[in-house]
Design a binder for these strands. Sequence first.
DNA 1: AACGCTAATGATAATCATTATCATTAAAAT
DNA 2: ATTTTAATGATAATGATTATCATTAGCGTT
Lengths: 159, 159
Amino acid sequence: MIMIIISVMADKEAISKNFKKYLSSRGLRRTLQRDVIVREIIKSAKHLTADEIFERLRKKNPNIGYATVCRNLKLLYSAGIIDEIKIGNQKTRYELKSEDSHHDHLICVKCGKFIEVFSEKIEELQKEMARKERFIVLRHKLEIYGICKYCGEKGGERS
Amino acid sequence: MIMIIISVMADKEAISKNFKKYLSSRGLRRTLQRDVIVREIIKSAKHLTADEIFERLRKKNPNIGYATVCRNLKLLYSAGIIDEIKIGNQKTRYELKSEDSHHDHLICVKCGKFIEVFSEKIEELQKEMARKERFIVLRHKLEIYGICKYCGEKGGERS
DNA sequence: AACGCTAATGATAATCATTATCATTAAAAT
DNA sequence: ATTTTAATGATAATGATTATCATTAGCGTT
Ligand SMILES: [Mn+2]
Ligand SMILES: [Mn+2]
Ligand SMILES: [Zn+2]
Ligand SMILES: [Zn+2]
């Protein structure tokens, strides 16, 4: 129990630390806005849009600007701290990306829910496939669209 | 040789035929514009944007409208005849999708080239993963981003 | 602690792919 | 031929994202 809590806390602190490192290594500045944005990302639910994050931040920081949120989400993405999820023409969503947590998504076309999945074998086969083409893999995106068990069941679509 | 040509021709005719079937089954009309759009899609290079297709069509059909091209690309997608490829905020690209030709893409972040790949094993593992979640798969999208062999070689990025 | 440099912010405008609107045209059924 | 209405083409609207720019505030130096 305690172990879990400690490891999560350590993880979160590691994220902030990495971000600060990233900033200073590039001559970027640490700002109040950047601090509250990472903190919100860390404690928030996953798969939020820029304006969902913006609205949450507004509650405590009424003066923060939407552009600032967007800019810094991009920055966090560049820093490898968060992932961007772009589905069709929907708003971009963001989620924290801690070292060991890569995963892909099953996306329900009825209710929009994201189910996180992972297959070491698929990851391996991707690398193998790329290797055959002498292609250097930087990242990938696997999205499986369909109907989740709740929406599939009895016509209902409540999760 | 001849066999190949015949099979390709048959395939192309099958596409037009399927489209006509799709139209009539839904009470939609066959139009000159729809005809030239499918024909262009069939003979064109792959991974074209709506306005690339529009420009090509304009050469022979100076009166065709951009909205008509977009609308019918969406229609062809609904009919299962073409695939949509949406990368980040780039313009949507389209490619013909014949029965047996599903594939995924390696996408070079330097030169933008698309390399088509396919792994039966990955396809199987995806289905297996979904089955575990009692998720009904409708379609999927696997994009692997990285650096192609030409761009990786000697700093060059000519294909 | 004050100064200077300039990155960062916040308000707003611009961008641009896509979608909607609507008067007109033309499939296709009668 | 007439009628019905889907489809078209020109254009406007939309909306997420990005750019602009005057102002603010990190942060290293003095
Ligand atoms: Mn996720
Ligand atoms: Mn392709
Ligand atoms: Zn669902
Ligand atoms: Zn390349």
